[in-house]
């Protein structure tokens, strides 16, 4: 068991170490959400600058409404894309080094997912920190609770990303799947506009979209506004994360060379 734990820790450590070296990845992962907050958020916040506007967003100014959504989005994106590193490892051969090791496969893949999740959460926190000066209604005491939501979201979607990457051999196919899934999921999560104004068919998708529950949960803890019970959000996310991690571990245990 301690052998498994060692493998898990060192694989997480590897992801962190690699990330710290990849400056370009750090910069690009932070710039994109900032663009959303500045050019999308600041722009619309001036549009919604009329007396009744706050009613639309549960009493919040638009930037305070948007920020939890963008934070969740950045964690979600970073996690999902984490799967790409598995494809890199396939192409650069490092995956074989892990496959031939005696350490339990579930431990090595879980360690890697955890490492990537920590990275995704750190990115989310940076965005959050940078947003505090412009989003006036955010409560700093809600940050620890939202970290929990981000982490579970990240474990879930890194798990999904890794599982996809284990099945897919080409980088292009992976990127195609990601671009197909990612933007719709972000738009249908309530990150940019409240769920209750969506057409019914969109609402249905939003209700099965795991990102919805993250945005909702984080918004509750940071801004005190939510559509669901925040504990329901947490339960849905945890359930999804558990399934995704088990699937990733199972797939990796069965992985052989093609």
């Amino acid at each position: 068991m301690s052998e498994a734990l060692d493998a898990l820790i060192v694989m997480a450590y590897r992801q962190l170490k690699r990330f710290r070296r990849g400056r370009a990845r750090i910069v690009s992962s932070i710039v994109n959400p900032i663009i959303w907050i500045v050019f999308f958020g600041l722009g619309w916040s001036n549009v919604f600058n009329f007396p009744m506007a706050r009613m639309i967003f549960g009493g919040l100014d638009y930037l305070s409404f948007l920020t939890p959504g963008v934070v969740a989005m950045s964690v979600f994106t970073a996690s999902f894309i984490g799967g790409i590193t598995v494809i890199w490892d396939k192409q650069f051969g490092f995956l074989k080094e892990v496959l031939v090791a005696p350490a339990p496969r579930w431990a090595t893949i879980l360690g890697r997912i955890m490492g990537d999740s920590v990275i995704a959460v750190l990115q989310g926190l940076i965005i959050l920190g940078l947003s505090f000066p412009v989003a006036h209604s955010l409560n700093p005491w809600g940050v620890p609770a939202s970290i929990l939501y981000m982490l579970i979201l990240s474990l879930a979607f890194t798990g999904v990303g890794v599982s996809l990457a284990l099945r897919i051999t080409s980088m292009e196919a992976f990127q195609m799947i990601i671009s197909f899934l990612m933007l719709p999921l972000v738009f249908l999560s309530g990150a940019f506009y409240p769920l209750k104004y969506m057409p019914d068919w969109m609402k249905i998708i939003a209700y099965v979209n795991p990102l919805t529950y993250t945005v909702d949960g984080i918004r509750y803890w940071l801004a005190g506004v939510s559509s669901f019970n925040p504990y329901l959000d947490l339960a849905v996310l945890s359930g999804l994360a558990a399934i995704a991690l088990v699937v990733a571990a199972k797939l990796f245990s069965r992985t052989a060379l093609d």
Partner: peptide, 10 residues
């Protein structure tokens, strides 16, 4: 292995 299997970023 015949093909490299090191982590170049480390």
């Amino acid at each position: 292995f015949q093909d490299p299997s090191l982590d170049g970023e480390l």
